[in-house]
Amino acid sequence: MTAIFNPTGLAPVAPVPRQPAPAAPPAPAPPPGPVGPVLELPGTPAAALVPVTHEGRPIGAFVLDRGRVRYRRVVDPDQFVAAAAGAFAVAALTAAVAVVARRRPPAINTVRMGPGGWVSLRGAPAPALTPDRRPWWARLLRARRLVVER
């Protein structure tokens, strides 16, 4: 048995397998456009569907059925939730304003008992001494009658 050694005295190294030549890189796919591929729908009569997108989100589809083309919008759940939240906020604000507006202040402020037993209505508006029967323009001009009323 004969062994062949290389000049360094080590066993020969197995040859490295050849790598196949790299294939040409695939052509980049065209960027997705606003209109997708035509989708054939099963059934009779035949129908076709063409999806429409905006910034990667579906916004609708063209439907070809019985020789007519119709556009159908897709309901966006995010917009639906935002609209519902906005409507709820407006309704809650309106209800809060209605509750606050219906609350009437008390006719008089706190009733207190003063020294000696007299009652104090501090902060109550003074009643009008006599009813004012002048027309609105006379009150606006602060006009008074020349003849004394009885």
Rank of each mutant, 00 (worst) to 15 (best):
V119C: 06
P30H: 02
A47C: 01
V74C: 00
P12M: 13
P105S: 15
M113T: 14
P105R: 15
V111E: 03
A96H: 00
M113L: 15
P12W: 11
L121N: 03
T8F: 00
A24M: 08
T53Y: 01
T44S: 05
D65G: 02
R133G: 07
G116S: 07
W136M: 07
W136K: 06
P31K: 08
V99I: 13
R73T: 14
T94S: 14
I59Q: 00
L121V: 15
A128T: 14
V38T: 12
L49P: 00
A143K: 12
P51A: 06
W118H: 12
P105V: 14
A126P: 04
A24L: 12
A82D: 10
T8H: 06
R139L: 06
P45G: 05
R112F: 04
A14C: 08
P105K: 15
Y71N: 01
V38S: 00
V50N: 03
P22G: 06
R112N: 08
R133V: 13
G123V: 10
A83R: 14
G116Q: 10
F5E: 10
P30W: 01
R73H: 11
V147M: 05
V90E: 07
I59Y: 02
F80Q: 12
V111P: 03
A89W: 00
L146P: 01
A47E: 02
T44N: 01
P30K: 11
A89I: 06
R72I: 12
A24K: 11
V90K: 03
A92C: 08
W118S: 12
A143H: 11
P30F: 04
A23I: 05
R133W: 11
R145Y: 13
R112I: 06
Q19T: 15
G117Q: 11
V69L: 13
G114V: 13
P22R: 04
G9Q: 08
R72P: 03
A83E: 11
L93W: 05
F88P: 04
G36M: 04
P51R: 04
R150A: 15
P51Q: 07
R18M: 10
V99G: 00
A84R: 11
R122K: 10
V81G: 04
P25D: 04
A29P: 00
P25H: 06
P17E: 13
V148I: 13
A24C: 01
Q79N: 08
W136S: 11
P51K: 00
A138F: 02
V97R: 06
A124Q: 11
Y71H: 06
V148H: 07
A124R: 14
R139I: 12
E149K: 09
P31M: 06
A3D: 02
R70M: 05
R139F: 02
L39K: 09
A92L: 14
P42S: 15
A95G: 12
P105E: 14
P25E: 07
E40A: 13
D78S: 09
R18N: 09
R18I: 15
P51M: 04
A87Y: 03
A21F: 04
V50D: 02
V90A: 14
A84T: 12
L129G: 08
W136F: 09
D65Y: 09
T53H: 01
A85E: 14
G116F: 04
S120N: 13
P45N: 09
A92P: 02
F80C: 00
P45W: 08
R142G: 10
V75L: 09
V100G: 00
M113A: 13
L49S: 04
A95F: 05
F5W: 12
G116H: 08
L146Q: 10
V63Y: 03
V35D: 00
I59M: 02
V100F: 02
A98Y: 03
